[in-house]
Design a protein around this nucleic acid. Sequence first.
RNA 1: GGGGGCGUGGUGUAGCGGUUAACAUGCCUGCCUGUCACGCAGGAGAUCGCGGGUUCGAUUCCCGUCGCUCCCGCCA
Length: 595
Amino acid sequence: MLRTHTCGELRTSHAGQAVTLCGWAHSVRDHGGLVFITLRDRYGFTQVVVEPGASQSAAECARGIHRESVLRIRGTVSQRPEGTWNNTIATGQVEVIAGDIEIMSDAAPILPVEVSDDKLANEEARLRYRYIDLRRHSLQANMHARHRAALAVRNWLEKQDFIEIQTPLFVRSTPEGARDFVVPSRNFPGMFYALPQSPQLYKQLLMIAGFDRYFQLAPCFRDEDQRADRQLVHTQIDLEMSFCDEEDVFTIVEGIISAAFKAVNGVEVKGPFPRLSYDEAMERFGSDKPDLRFGLEMRDLTDLVSESEFGIFREVCASGGRVRGLAATGCAHFSRKETDELADIAKIYKAKGIITLKIEEGQVRGSVAKYLSEDAQRGIVKRLQAVDGDLVIITADDPEVSAVSLGQVRRFLGRKLGLIREGDYKLLWVTEFPLFEWNPDENRWEAKHHIFTQPREQDLPILESDPAAVKGRLYDLVLNGVEMGSGSIRINNPELQKRVMNIVGTTTEDAERKFGFLLHAYEYGGPVHGGFAIGFDRLIAVILGLENLRDVIAFPQNAAGVSLVDDCPNEIDLKQWQELHIRPAESVVPRSGSR
RNA sequence: GGGGGCGUGGUGUAGCGGUUAACAUGCCUGCCUGUCACGCAGGAGAUCGCGGGUUCGAUUCCCGUCGCUCCCGCCA
């Protein structure tokens, strides 16, 4: 090695030793005669002192060092004089007296982004110069945390007899679900590979093959629009196990989550995590991924107001809609501007508006109060456990809209009112999801999770007659209001599989074409099995308290899906088009040069 | 596909219908032997994203466009 120690290593016990350090010039402080250089590497900071008396050549060299240049410094470790210790760095009691400085790589004097966690440059610049931005302490720490978590998860799963098996990255394209990324085949004109949205089908085959406990840290590709918590490529902790039920999967996943927390920040999280059915989550929190770090629970008020004088309530109730409310603690003083803000949130989620009532001096006040009977007013106050100073917020819409829009108002209020304690982690399982979802655009039922999910046994008789009421053996893991992953117990019975496919309108020929290989596989001995997939990037981000996945991914894409560091996607040569037997659509004008 | 926000020296910000476009930091020069975001003095550095309009005059107001970002849709 070109160095004897790292920049985080030296202590007073090393005093007197001759050492060689390599690193980046984090800051250079020139005092004329005396120059201080803070040298940085992955491991920490070490102060180098350049004294003209100690080395004339080093002193001359030190004068022209640019920040972020790579230096190799030979010198002697020395305990710092009394009163000059720096307690903010681990090596703060020592310094290296430079004997020789070698500028291994001179950095340009003006940097496009700063290596500093305060005052960040705009994200575009930071992504374009990601290799500089990654030098920041917080990103280095995030990458370390991610590594520790991956290692801990692998070790823990190995102890539970899971083995990691890689599955193909070139897979069969299926029209279901997210849009596929697609790779044209050179050998088969007009044919394409797809990049996997998840290893789902392969892990089912692995169960049939007898690998009864499989896992994988698997890259997953989905060509959909980006969000702060969604990247085109993300990593799942994917797992599947045979001869199990929900409880077994929960136990394993709880163990994984505990291991990850412990590895990332030492927080103790232990199972079993609380559980909530999908229906209950929607009723109480207006979300299938409720944030349980605060209260502000919702209640149904439909029965109390269906006979009221208020037209909106009457109409909504008469047409099968629902009226829901929550009591916002101490918000009766909200200004018009503030309640409008709440209404705007609700409107984003398709609500027509919100109705607010103030609770003051034991009275219900507000423009709608006069339309509500004494009984209705008392009933609302009682059901929402509202007290003086509260603001009652009500939505009235179709069942889903009234729940979701009020749920989003609740989420907003939780933050606005500062009800979320930093460092608080609330995990829960959401269970008994509906198996099917009605797609009004295509006028048909769709699988909520995927078509391989088992219906609950008690729902088998109504499978065809009332698909909306059928619940699946389907579960999500939620952490602080973020969906961390989902899984299910799979169908391993070809007859049942056919019934489910019939409901979502997959004909036998369709099924044969798309999933024939999988369906046939179950004809040769398919065990009962189930599994789960955890969004690994999200997990690390939420544990670290970060909102954006880019902070836990070394080379992420921007919101448009562009990898700025290498300017990808990029155009390809005409020859490549030809080899792949494809040509651009008429409407496409190939871009020339880079963006 | 739709909506919101943002775009001013390398970087982060301020500003305003008429300015010499301000401040901080970085950079360059000089001084400085105990700093650690060193300090002090001086200096360079911006066609205010782009195009059009309104106006005597636009960085500022309006329209369009591009880029970034967040959200809705989408994401089995």
